[in-house]
Design a protein around this nucleic acid. Structure first.
Length: 227
DNA sequence: TGCCAGGCCGGGT
DNA sequence: ACCCGGCATGGC
């Protein structure tokens, strides 16, 4: 393999990524992701949070819990229209109701409705299968692999991209899979590290790297802006 | 008040 | 292979 095409600067990504991680961890501490009480809840949350504020997702999940519906069996049975009303607060509720039904159907038909049974698969194969489900894209699939199934897969999202771009570490035309590989190839293949790293990027992103604020004022990663 | 949030799909070029 | 419109609520 030659140099990473996506790597912008002639720096040791391995070194920089570790420094960024250490800095974020020292600043914010462990994030305790994913905020859910079961692997299945992680998967449903991954769908509900697509382009949506997590607060709105929490309401939807709590609503499902309140109605005792947060299980593969119950969600398999429930009418899609009724489901959409229950998850309304998460936005795109018609689409997301359909997506949840698709995922649950996949889970029940292929894994007896048990998330645990997915762990028998290797991550690459399972990723392909998840991506074949209408409504599960790359970030959702990777979130399920990492946060529900403890597989060593790096999750990329809009914050990951924006933070890396603003710090001059990537080109703007990098693809999701390229950015994912960039992290995976320059970090130890450690579920714990991948887990915290993504969560920490979201944390610092929410506070210092919003889309509406083009500068990273007061960002703990300022020292990495020029390197 | 308008803009944004832990994306994804389908159709058009 | 990109590019774009549509999807939608709630918080700041």
């Amino acid at each position: 393999m030659g140099k990473n095409r996506e790597m912008k600067k002639s720096v040791h990504l391995e070194e920089v990524l570790k420094k960024i991680y250490d800095k974020l961890f020292a600043t914010f501490g462990p994030q305790g992701w994913w905020p859910a009480s079961s692997p299945f809840e992680v998967a449903i949350g991954a769908i509900l949070t697509q382009n949506t504020n997590w607060k709105n997702v929490e309401k939807a999940i709590n609503n499902l819990k309140k109605h005792n519906l947060l299980s593969p069996k119950k969600l398999k049975e429930i009418d899609e229209k009724k489901l959409s009303i229950l998850i309304k607060s998460a936005g795109y509720y018609n689409q997301k109701a359909k997506k949840i039904k698709e995922f649950v159907k996949f889970l029940v038909e292929n894994y007896n409705g048990k998330m645990e049974e997915m762990k028998k698969e290797n991550p690459e194969d399972l990723r392909e299968k998840l991506l074949s489900i209408k409504g599960i894209g790359r970030e959702s699939a990777d979130s399920i692999l990492l946060y529900a199934l403890d597989m060593p897969v790096f999750v990329v999202d809009a914050y990951t991209y924006r933070i890396m771009l603003r710090h001059g570490l990537i080109y703007e035309d990098i693809t999701y899979d390229e950015l994912k590989e960039l992290f995976e190839k320059n970090l130890p293949h450690d579920v714990k590290i991948f887990n915290e790293y993504h969560a920490l990027l979201v944390k610092v992103g929410k506070e210092f790297c919003k889309k509406s604020v083009p500068k990273c004022n007061g960002c703990p990663l300022e020292e990495f802006l020029e390197k």
